[in-house]
């Protein structure tokens, strides 16, 4: 009996070692035929399953674009739900290949947790949501309030700093997921719910009475959100980074899901041709992909602007304006390095 257990342990240990023997993430994903993408447990507009059980959203679109670029099919994604607490462990352990879960880019996450941020797909900031009946018009009036907050996020630290800097006190109610926070907030167990302003807008859109809840004007932090991968495989980080850049560049160059087939037959613009693989240059080969990788990535969900409009834009219930997330040519911050 004891021996059996022992040999069992030995076998398990051997398997662990074998797993650690490193192949590149790209090879693993190709061999698996599926991209493991970490998403949230459900933030409407960013990553949430629709009525048919298909994952939809702004972050989900990044996963699908990467799957299209690498595997040739945007459907070949396995979505792994992660909470604020489990996301980094899942990524560090290799359970997921990339994390697209409105995660804030910070120095310590980059350097100490050893992750590589592939860029910023949404420039956000932390805000507060409160019931209009409370008659509060500024975050400066929140002294003594009870605040619902997701644990294990940067918002938790920003909140502590903000109240300290303004010499106010508060009572934190730590919450694990957005859905729990919503329930607590609606039940009145907390006065205020704080998270990224985009998340607040997404949450408010699912309320029965969104008009009774106000977002306070103060934005108390910078929250550059973006997808990330683990340290140690620069090729994989490059693939995710340039897939995102391709989406932004596509908007800038006017490539949309409607005209991409047309444009890929060849255009007067050499950069469009390079991106869509219709010229001699083979950019994809530089990180182990084929010529058409960017074309497939863009065709999956359209360019950055199309993804934004379809999931969280002003025509959706979430109704976010482009703001900082407009292209650099239109006064925003979204900017892609050149495809050359």
């Amino acid at each position: 009996m004891n021996k059996t257990v022992f040999f069992g342990a030995m076998t398990a240990a051997v398997t662990l070692v074998a797993g650690a023997a490193s192949a590149t993430v790209l090879d693993e994903v190709k061999a698996r035929g599926e991209l493991n993408c970490g998403v949230s447990t459900g933030v409407n507009g960013f990553s949430a399953p629709d009525s048919a059980g298909e994952w939809q959203g702004f972050d989900v679109a990044v996963c699908r674009a990467v799957a299209a670029a690498v595997l040739g099919d945007p459907k070949k994604v396995k979505f792994v739900t992660t909470t604020g607490q489990t996301r980094f462990t899942a990524l560090a352990s290799g359970e997921i290949d990339m994390l697209a879960r409105n995660t804030t880019w910070t120095l310590s996450r980059d350097a100490d947790l050893k992750f590589t941020f592939a860029g910023v797909n949404y420039y956000d900031g932390q805000g507060f949501m409160i019931n209009k009946a409370m008659g509060v018009s500024s975050a400066k009036e929140l002294d003594g309030s009870t605040v619902c907050i997701q644990t294990g996020t940067t918002t938790e630290l920003n909140l502590a700093d903000y109240f300290k800097a303004n010499n106010m006190t508060y009572e934190p109610v730590p919450i694990e997921t957005n859905a729990e926070a919503q329930q607590q907030y609606l039940a009145g167990a907390c006065d205020v719910y704080t998270t990224d302003a985009s998340g607040l807008a997404a949450t408010r859109a699912t309320f029965a009475d969104p008009e009774n809840h106000a977002l306070l004007p103060e934005i108390i932090s910078k929250e550059p959100l973006g997808p990330l991968v683990a340290h140690g495989d620069d090729q994989w980080a490059d693939i995710v980074r340039w897939t995102m850049n391709a989406l932004v560049a596509a908007e800038e160059l006017g490539i949309t899901s409607a005209n991409i087939e047309e444009l890929s037959k060849g255009t007067a613009n050499p950069e469009v041709d390079r991106m869509l693989g219709s010229s001699e240059d083979d950019l994809g080969a530089m990180f182990g992909l084929d010529k058409q990788w960017a074309k497939r990535a863009i065709a999956a969900n359209g360019n950055y602007g199309e993804i934004f409009a379809a999931n969280i834009g002003e025509s959706t219930p979430i109704g976010l304006a482009r703001g900082l997330n407009a292209l650099w040519t239109q006064g925003g911050l979204q900017y892609s390095p050149p495809f050359r």
């Binding site: 607490q85 980094f88 462990t89 100490d112 644990t151 630290l157 730590p174």
Partner: peptide, 24 residues
């Protein structure tokens, strides 16, 4: 206790501290 947001040992050291420092 973390299920209801009671800040016990698991929620402080094993929850927020773990998560903010990444020292699992």
């Amino acid at each position: 206790a973390i299920a209801v947001g009671y800040m016990d040992l698991r929620a402080t050291l094993g929850g927020i501290t773990l998560n903010q420092t990444g020292r699992e």
